[in-house]
Simulated scan of single mutants.
Amino acid sequence: MTVEFAARLPLARNELDRDAEHRSTPDLERVLRDDPTTRFLPVHGGAMLRNADGTLRFVAADQVPDDATLLYLGRAVSDAPDAPAGTRFVAALVDDAAAARIEPDSDVWENLRMFGTELSARDQGLAVEAVAMANWHAVHGFSPRTGSPTESTVGGWVRRDPEGHQHFPRTDAAIIVGITDGQDRILLGSNAAWDANRYSLLAGFVEPGESLEDAVRREVFEEAGVTIEEPEYLGSQPWPFPASLMVGFRARAVDGDPSTARPDGVEIIDVRWFSRDEIREQAGDTVLLPGRTSIARVIIEEWYGGPLDLP
């Protein structure tokens, strides 16, 4: 992975010290609430608030309900107008009532998918971490081992049940791959869950006991019937919708007739080879491509040779 490619990955930028050693600080929640310099980031169902200048909007400790789940995100590593280096950041998971008190206009609460590319590196790191952890807490209120209710501990990074079992956040690895043929066309597929004219790279989750490279080969053949040569790693970025790490590759289809590409008919309903001219002429019109926050868009633009003037 080149530094230039990594810098273009929308949700992989970060300027934050996660400060893991302080997550186990005794009575950490009180320490954070009592420190007037702590910045609290309200998170409501994965949505956040922004200021007029586009920066994340923080609130004071007294605006955060006592029963809100707090997630210690870490410390700033550089000075910014709203927070000097060393400032501690906390995500506060708020319910409907608390969110309405903080900001009653529901339209102001925004999803990270929509504005992720507009944030600074620090705010991107905070937002991605907060959303990923919020999603994990939302589905781990009960122990998968005992069925007992769990409680948040260690700065929000562990959930513990009454029997003492500890449960830690997990990330699902998924591969995504830009495949080209002998004419340097790129293979894109349309998912059954999307609009019929929306296309993206082929992708899929890594199965247990499988390497990333084997997952690339398997997913491409399963979804499009295409056999590829040795895949090459490009880069990765978190995709907390709800809990994935997208690992990007590029690969070449083996010699043969590329017209044999065919969709699996279940998950993928169409696959097409696109030339650069076809992308330039059709993208945004008859063909919809992935949004700017996705690694898929970056890989497509890497193949295309520059940015596409699309949302």
Score class of each variant (00 low, 15 high):
1 M>L: 13
3 V>E: 15
4 E>L: 15
5 F>G: 00
10 P>D: 05
10 P>M: 07
11 L>W: 01
12 A>D: 08
13 R>C: 05
13 R>D: 06
14 N>S: 15
16 L>S: 04
20 A>K: 11
20 A>E: 15
28 L>G: 02
35 D>I: 00
35 D>N: 12
38 T>P: 02
39 R>I: 01
43 V>L: 12
47 A>T: 12
47 A>S: 13
51 N>S: 08
51 N>D: 15
53 D>R: 07
57 R>Q: 12
57 R>T: 03
59 V>T: 04
59 V>R: 03
64 V>L: 06
68 A>L: 10
70 L>E: 01
72 Y>C: 01
75 R>C: 07
76 A>Y: 07
76 A>V: 04
78 S>P: 02
80 A>I: 01
84 P>N: 00
85 A>E: 12
87 T>V: 06
92 A>Y: 04
92 A>M: 05
98 A>H: 13
99 A>I: 11
104 P>T: 13
107 D>R: 15
108 V>Q: 15
111 N>E: 14
112 L>H: 03
114 M>Q: 10
116 G>H: 05
117 T>V: 13
119 L>D: 03
122 R>Y: 05
124 Q>H: 03
124 Q>P: 00
126 L>K: 05
127 A>G: 08
131 V>T: 05
132 A>R: 12
132 A>Q: 09
133 M>V: 06
133 M>Q: 11
134 A>I: 04
138 A>P: 05
139 V>N: 06
140 H>I: 06
142 F>C: 06
142 F>K: 08
148 S>Y: 09
151 E>Q: 14
153 T>E: 14
155 G>L: 08
156 G>F: 09
158 V>A: 07
159 R>T: 05
160 R>V: 14
161 D>A: 06
161 D>K: 04
164 G>A: 09
168 F>G: 01
169 P>V: 08
169 P>Y: 12
174 A>Q: 09
180 T>C: 00
182 G>S: 14
182 G>Q: 15
186 I>K: 03
188 L>Y: 07
190 S>A: 15
191 N>V: 11
197 N>C: 05
199 Y>V: 06
204 G>M: 10
206 V>P: 02
210 E>T: 04
211 S>Y: 08
212 L>H: 08
213 E>M: 02
215 A>M: 07
217 R>K: 15
219 E>H: 12
221 F>P: 00
222 E>F: 02
226 V>Q: 03
226 V>N: 02
229 E>W: 00
230 E>Q: 10
230 E>K: 04
236 S>A: 14
238 P>V: 05
239 W>I: 00
239 W>E: 07
242 P>V: 13
243 A>R: 11
245 L>C: 00
249 F>A: 00
250 R>N: 00
251 A>M: 02
256 G>V: 11
256 G>D: 15
257 D>M: 12
258 P>V: 04
258 P>S: 03
260 T>K: 06
262 R>A: 11
262 R>Q: 08
263 P>S: 00
266 V>D: 10
267 E>G: 03
267 E>I: 10
270 D>K: 06
270 D>S: 13
271 V>H: 07
271 V>M: 09
275 S>R: 10
278 E>V: 02
284 G>Q: 01
286 T>Y: 01
286 T>F: 02
292 R>A: 09
298 V>Q: 05
300 I>V: 14
